[in-house]
């Protein structure tokens, strides 16, 4: 029995590490790294795969008995394009899960908040389970929750940058306000970053580049797995507060 499971929509996840499938040097290394990560949620770019082809270069190597396939709308520059990609995905993959990415500027892939909200609203009404990639914007997070997003996925720092949690203070607010799972997506470059996000109380993290381009993707995938578990346990245990080490009590004048 899983005592600390993550629930998204109607599905239970034992692993809180979500992984991406881009940038690997071969599908075989990708498969081994995904196995080592223990992940049960795998995202694939709809522009990269042919969902209707079971022999697809990437899909072919995924264990979809064990893992939830999470198609993403990478490349969409507007709500409209993302919606059409999602419709195509559902029609050809039998999954209604969608990682919504609306990124009009192709170099830094910063999400467009306005279009993301619009697409989320539409896709939820169409019966999709929507996991939107978003700015670390606490107000937007609440708006997405209000229109029926299943999670929110704020960025830690620009995608592919490996810079860690540059948006930490905003992510803390998102976590404290949220009624739906918060998954830190983008920017996680090291196991320590993943661990930090989990210690803050994130429900999961999504990692791709940091695994795919490491010298040993399989070993680092396992490092991420342990880092996420350690961070989660740290959060559950309740981290001891930082202290400046002052010995005296500020109320010594009052409490004798």
């Amino acid at each position: 029995m899983i005592t600390d499971a993550l629930k998204i929509a109607d599905r239970i996840f034992a692993s809180r590490l979500f992984v991406g499938t881009g940038k690997f040097s071969s599908p075989l290394i990708m498969k081994k790294a995904l196995d080592a990560s223990g992940s049960e949620m795998i995202t694939v770019a709809l522009r990269r795969v042919d969902l209707s082809n079971p022999d697809d270069h990437i899909l072919h190597h995924l264990d979809l008995q064990k893992c939830q396939l999470l198609p993403n709308t990478a490349g969409a520059q507007s709500a409209d394009e993302a919606i059409r990609l999602a419709m195509l995905s559902r029609a050809s993959s039998q999954t209604n899960w969608i990682k919504l990415e609306v990124t009009p500027e192709p170099r830094h892939l910063i999400p467009d908040s306005e279009e993301t909200l619009k697409a989320t609203k539409f896709l939820v009404k169409e019966g999709f389970i929507v996991l939107p990639y978003m700015q670390a914007d606490p107000i937007l997070a609440k708006k997405l929750e209000d229109v029926g997003a299943s999670t929110v996925m704020p960025l830690g720092s620009p995608i592919g940058s490996n810079k860690g949690l540059k948006t930490k203070e905003l992510i803390k607010i998102i976590i404290s306000n949220s009624n739906i799972p918060v998954i830190v997506d983008a920017g996680i470059g090291a196991p320590s970053h993943a661990c930090e996000a989990m210690e803050l109380g994130a429900d999961a993290v999504l990692v791709n580049t940091a695994i795919a381009i490491a010298n040993d993707p399989i070993l680092i995938a396992s490092a991420f797995k342990h880092a996420v578990e350690a961070g989660r346990k740290g959060f559950l245990a309740g981290l001891a507060q930082e202290s400046d080490g002052e010995a005296s009590s500020p109320l010594s004048w009052l409490i004798k």
Binding site: S26, P27, G75, E81, L88
Partner: peptide, 24 residues
């Protein structure tokens, strides 16, 4: 490419990103 440690990418686009038939 594979010998040199690269994954050859054949598909990296969707005609959906090119077609003009808005749903919104």
């Amino acid at each position: 490419l594979e010998k040199n440690g690269f994954d050859p990418v054949i598909k990296d686009w969707s005609t959906i990103l090119s077609s003009i038939s808005p749903v919104l």
